[in-house]
């Protein structure tokens, strides 16, 4: 006799959590597929190796480049530009965003022009920036700042507006003045969400960095990529892209770690 088959629910359930092992396995598979496709196309020379280098050539180039002091200088200057532009945008943007999210008057004053400006592509400002700030460090920092600032203000304002009104009212009935309520309720309440937003914006900052470094520079990772392109060193282009990806990943992980450490209550 055949034992009755145990009925099990289908595996793919909407929103259902999976074990961390399964998660890691799926992630591993997707990387593996990517690598397999790359290997297939490059080792069989289905694509000309000049356009698509093989994985081992890129890996070799990766270690060769990281072995040189010059490459670390490129990394250093790029990290400096990204962090300066990003920090500046945060320094100015976060307070303005909180202000715009808190008071309707401030919202009306700040948001409409920002909504307008944010649809202007930051890249289109490059010629203007070069006229205003020349081609020095400030020009790159300014471009990253422009790319991040307007979005940041709008997003911070939005987070601030979504703080529970009941929490705010509770603080009023406990004796808080308006300014105290901003200090003791709004600012702590937005922090976890703010960290998520900063993570996102930092990603954009890296994108604008590459754009900034494609014009009139002789240092930085974007420049290294440009130069490699000039000599058709596609393996070096790959290395540049991978290094930027890794730097982005590292900064993102740092943010995620800080989020867990700083806000255990969330």
């Amino acid at each position: 006799m055949i034992p009755p088959k145990r009925r099990t629910p289908p595996k793919l359930q909407i929103f259902k959590d999976i074990s961390s092992v399964s998660y890691a396995m799926m992630a591993g598979i997707s990387f593996f597929l990517l690598l397999a496709l790359w290997s297939l196309l490059s080792y069989t020379e289905a694509v000309n190796p000049v356009f698509l280098p093989t994985p081992d050539a890129v890996l070799l180039e990766f270690f060769r480049q990281l072995g040189t002091a010059a490459y670390w200088e490129h990394i250093g200057i790029s990290v400096f530009r990204v962090s300066s532009g990003f920090a500046l945008a945060c320094l100015v943007g976060i307070p303005i965003g909180i202000f715009a999210g808190t008071f309707r008057h401030a919202e009306a004053l700040i948001e409409p022009p920002m909504e307008f400006i944010r649809y202007m592509p930051a890249v289109a400002f490059i010629p203007l920036i070069m006229v205003w700030a020349g081609i020095g460090e400030w020009a790159k920092i300014l471009l990253i700042f422009i790319g991040c600032f307007f979005q940041l203000v709008l997003m911070v304002a939005d987070i601030t507006r979504r703080v529970s009104h009941d929490l705010l009212h509770a603080s009023f009935t406990l004796g808080a003045s308006r300014w105290k309520a901003i200090e003791t309720v709004l600012i702590p309440a937005i922090q976890p969400q703010l960290m998520h937003t900063l993570r996102l914006i930092l990603g954009w900052a890296w994108t604008y960095l590459v754009v900034a470094e494609l014009v009139a520079v002789n240092s930085g990772l974007g420049y290294a990529i440009m130069r490699a392109q000039r000599y058709l060193n596609t393996d070096q282009i790959f290395v540049g892209i991978i290094v930027i990806g890794l730097l982005g990943l590292i900064s993102d992980r740092i943010f995620a770690f800080l989020n867990k450490r700083l806000f255990p209550w969330a």
Binding site: S164, D166, L167, H169, A170, S171, T173, L174, T184, V185, P188, A189, Q191, F263, W265, A266
Partner: peptide
């Protein structure tokens, strides 16, 4: 005038 709300309004942080 202290107030207790229907929803949970403790400060989570």
């Amino acid at each position: 005038r202290g107030m207790v709300f229907q929803g949970y309004t403790l400060f989570p942080w």
